[in-house]
Amino acid sequence: MTTSLGTSDLSIFPLALGGNTFGWTSDEATSRDVLDAFAAGGGNLVDTADVYSAWAPGNEGGESESVIGRWMADRKNRADVVVATKVSQHPQFSGLSASNIAAAAEASLGRLATDHIDLYYAHFDDENTPLEETVAAFDALVTAGKVRHVGISNFSAERVSEWVGIARRNGFAAPVALQPHYNLVHRSAFERDLAPAAEVNELAVLPYFGLASGFLTGKYRTQADLAQSNRGDGAKAYLNAEGLGVVDALGTIADARGSAVATVALAWLLSRPTVAAPIASARTVEQLPALLAVADLTLTSEELALLDEASASF
């Protein structure tokens, strides 16, 4: 099962594998096993960023890209992998000036051991750089053949529309994808502002934090559960009556369908207008089947209504 990525010529599996754990909570051997299992399960879009994982002790950024690059080189499967990475947050390549984008892209290409990036995102907005300069710099990479398609992440709806307008007025490569924070317990900001912008500008949406730092897998139900993993702190904000109500609704559907809670949460995202594929990370191979199973689970209107009601306050 594949789907088209917006207006691009990319065909993707309806789940993107997040690469933020590679070289951080997943060592290289485990990361390769996860990547192998993802590919064997039909997956092809791997999402990373040049900053992953500069926050970890001893890391400087680019570790995830390097793991993916070595894996593709060893497997000789570059043509089968859709590589998405991002610029603006690496400690050595901060911001979205034209010179920084060009230098960061070269560094990412080197770590990924490839001559092109399939989908290159502006990771975070840079209000210190004129947007016209940023858009032109991305277009230059597309013109040079170093980037196939442009994406935008963590931009406001207003800035997304401004970017698209600049691209269209100047004949620059227009973005094809939008990567926002969106899930069952983080809905309103996306649905109110960004969803309409994505629709009118024909952007494929690939939400990150699709499982709310693991909260929507159902494994965090008490304060003690938060100590189970490095991502527990990210789930802490949802550990309240409303959040647990969403998990309970997911569990009801999961039990009835013989599915994992995580699969149902991702299937809800995949049902949303404009969403092409949610992004989810797997620290181990054992976590991957529940993610890949989203391709085979279509929720009924009654199930969607139950989840919509449970998550309405978010």
Rank of each mutant, 00 (worst) to 15 (best):
Y121W: 05
D50E: 11
R168I: 03
V275E: 13
V46I: 15
N201G: 01
N128F: 12
A177P: 12
S259Y: 10
V51D: 08
F314L: 01
A113Q: 12
A260Y: 05
G43S: 02
I279E: 07
I166T: 03
H149A: 13
D33S: 14
P14K: 07
A39D: 04
G145Y: 14
A290W: 01
T25H: 10
T2Q: 15
G61A: 12
V160Q: 14
A84Q: 02
T30V: 09
K236F: 07
N183D: 03
A280V: 13
D118W: 06
A37I: 07
A29Q: 10
L270G: 07
G19D: 06
V285L: 06
V150W: 01
F172W: 02
A276D: 02
H123W: 13
V160C: 14
G165F: 01
L291N: 11
W55L: 06
Q179G: 05
G61Y: 13
L194P: 05
G145C: 13
P91L: 03
S301P: 04
L266R: 15
Y238S: 05
V200M: 08
A195Q: 02
V246W: 02
D296W: 03
I12Y: 11
M1E: 14
L184I: 06
N201T: 00
F190S: 06
A293L: 04
R257D: 13
T300W: 03
H116K: 02
F215A: 04
R78N: 02
A310Q: 05
A235C: 08
V46M: 08
M1Q: 14
Q179S: 04
A295N: 10
L131V: 01
A267L: 12
A40Y: 11
N240C: 04
D225F: 05
E158N: 03
D36H: 08
E60M: 03
Q92V: 04
L266I: 15
A40W: 11
R32F: 13
T252D: 15
V67A: 07
L119S: 10
L266F: 15
R159G: 08
V46L: 08
I166A: 09
P207E: 03
A104S: 13
G214K: 03
L17F: 13
R272L: 10
I101G: 00
L184K: 08
L291Q: 08
D248Y: 05
I166W: 05
H181S: 09
E309P: 01
T21C: 15
W163F: 15
L270E: 05
R159D: 15
D248K: 07
W268I: 09
L299F: 13
I117T: 09
G43Y: 00
